[in-house]
Design a protein around this nucleic acid. Structure first.
Lengths: 149, 149
DNA sequence: CAAAAGACGATAAGCATTATCGTTTGATAA
DNA sequence: TTATCAAACGATAATGCTTATCGTCTTTTG
């Protein structure tokens, strides 16, 4: 039984080791626990919430380590950042119905008209008891300028 | 000529006064300048950038006033906030292709599958020289819980 | 297994944003 | 128009989230 248990642990570690290798990052105990905890959480927890959970398994871990590794996971492609927008508050001054093209390299944001986007979901419908008010679409990709480099 | 000029100024002020009345907020000089500056700016400037511009016309204005009034404009419906997400960094742990339903009242965010959303845009196409990588859709509305109250 | 590179933890520092508070301004009614 | 009072303003301290620094410890690699 213990042998089987150790076998599973070893398998899990090997899997994570492979994941790290695939993404070109070093494998550490903190990273493994962080990864597993994040995978096991519902929704979109904040770094603080992740930190609280990880701390239960690795009491000595630092909040800075959690932040550093969340970024590392995002940069190396293990996870994806939810919002690609600027960090500070931004407001819509363009009163026409529109969406956004966000450059994944330079982070520039350009407006694109609803019709120009050519994307019209079955609007104002209910989905899982959710009453739709409007849609906000971010088209993520490369702007013309960033494609040239 | 002066009379005409004053007439225009008066018209502009009356228009803004009406806007404030329509949205149930008091009309002040700072708010009027802030509103006009914001309207005249391209893209999605940060509060600091707005502050820098307003300061040229109202040198004594405080950054706090800019923040307070940007929020007031958003809350009263004059402008719209660009991102409806949480303030801190959030990461996608759900590896399936999905989008988000964001409750405009309680700010809760729920995942919704791409198919479930029933939205299939002409993907991977170019729009204005922009090379599309993916789409991120926020469905904004009221969650089931908030509809009951 | 040893050296070099990189990661860790503790904590100070850095921004963006909000709260506080005394002063000033705008809305309302006489 | 002016008095009154609530609300807004400006200055700045405080807060919250995130990043940088740095000495120590762990992985990697040869």
């Amino acid at each position: 039984m213990l042998i089987v248990f150790c076998g599973i642990l070893n398998f899990v570690e090997q899997t994570f080791r492979q994941l790290c290798a695939d993404h070109g990052i070093a494998m550490t105990h903190q990273r493994q626990v962080l990864y597993e905890v994040m995978q096991g959480m519902e929704g979109h927890p904040s770094p603080e919430e992740v930190y609280a959970r990880v701390k239960k398994k690795v009491p000595a871990i630092s909040l800075a380590t959690v932040y550093k590794n969340i970024h590392l996971f995002v940069e190396s492609g293990v996870f994806r950042k939810m919002s690609v927008h600027h960090g500070s508050v931004r407001v819509e001054m363009n009163s026409k119905e529109h969406h956004h093209m966000v450059c994944s390299r330079c982070k520039s944001i350009t407006d694109i008209g609803e019709k120009e986007l050519g994307l019209s979901p079955a609007r104002r419908k209910l989905a899982d008891g959710f009453l739709v008010e409007r849609y906000a679409v971010d088209v993520i990709g490369l702007c013309a300028k960033c494609q040239q480099t």
